[in-house]
Nucleic acid binder design. Sequence first.
RNA 1: GGACCCUUAGCCAAGUGGUAAGGCACGGGACUGCAACUCCCUCACCGCCGGUUCAAAUCCGGCAGGGUCCUCCA
Length: 443
Amino acid sequence: MRIYNSYKDQVEEFIPIHENQVNMYVCGPTVYNYIHIGNARPVIFFDTVRRFFEAKGYHVKFVSNFTDVDDKIIQKAKDDHLDEMVVANHYIDAFLKDLEGLNCKTDYIKPRVTHYMGHIENFIKELVDKGYAYTIHGDVYFRVEKIKDYGILSNRQIEDLKSGARIDINPDKESPLDFTLWKKTTEGLNFESPFSKGRPGWHTECVAMIDDVFGEKIDIHGGGADLKFPHHENEIAQSKALHNHGLANYWMHNGRVSIKDTKMSKSLGNVILVKDVEDKMPLRYFLLSTHYRSPLNYDDEGFQMYVKEFEKLESSLKQLFRKLDLQDQIKQVDIENHEIKQILKDFDDALEEDFNTANAITALQSLLKVINVSIRKKESNDYYNQLNQAAHYMIGILGLKVKLEPMSQNDREMYHQWELARKNKDFKLADQLRNELTERGIL
RNA sequence: GGACCCUUAGCCAAGUGGUAAGGCACGGGACUGCAACUCCCUCACCGCCGGUUCAAAUCCGGCAGGGUCCUCCA
């Protein structure tokens, strides 16, 4: 397994800290709105990463947070005349529903900031005690310049950052680079702390929760490329200050999604929400069709291509399944066929090389071709089962769900009547039965 | 202004030194009671100009166009 490590800007062999175990953390949503397809990209991608690791026999401890205290939530609560926690809970539920629609696993560890206040406080306190942070007027800031190699992840020099820094209106900070660990405020949801009544800074939440949930350096930390700076850079800085390590061995960042070659943003009004996309599986297919590090552009016409592709996948697998199902012959077999084995190998090879889902999909497509050819021929049930199993292995890792229900006795009879009608050239009856079978999702 | 990235057929998209995967669309065939599905065939001087090399889409330099980050952002 090889992974492109953003921290070093190179592809590296993946070596887990603990054998057969992968500890990974992905920055989760701030729950003040429904997620859009750009948010869905890391969600789907890292779910696929998890699935592949699991398929390869790793135990994956997958953690992704909910930021449920934030200025944007306060604003949203004001706008909607609701309690902040009501807002947060609503969008957490909506997020999980979107996840299910996208066929992402939801059985992962989901720390919420509001449940970790004690730990976050202690974390900040320790930073202060060690001299890496300072309090002033109730606010707490991190001393960035105490971290000597600050900027490695995002490839920035401290000097450049200083000269490029916007005019800082906050004279309390020792340096414009310093970032907030604790913000004194009584507006919105706030918490008592030794520093002041207030809220934690976003950059400290993730690292404090990782600290508590894992209690050690983790294998993989993931998120969108735009989180590299300053968010992830600041997480690393805090971890170095407190634990003398860079938080994660491998940093993975996915590219952005744009819409019709334009940045997706609420002010431009070109946001596509996941909940509004009818074709959830084609969306997943689409988002995996480009390598995760490349930028991805969405437009309706292009997307139709993937809707069609997914339908093709669905119909081929359905026909194969039906062939076996009609004879009650679906069973576990050993995959021995050379061609199928080669395709499986191509699939695994693609994913093992920095999760190249685009090439993995190509392998899936070549299996589909083999399936389609075989369906027209008379092949053994054993061979069909090998194909079926290989296909399900692949779509299981890619997380592409295809509805395949075994036929009822009634369905079977109807199917046989249809065949009989065609044989007897009773095309009127045959067409009628065909329509019925199609409606029932059999054909 | 500073940092970085991208440019492969009509469209989407792999490929990071050995002579262009795959998909969609188009065109030509096949199969079929009619459809749908499916199958076969066809379809690229890798943005432009130089350089390095026996060999470059792949490395280096320049130019053009596009984008991201530097501020909340997945």
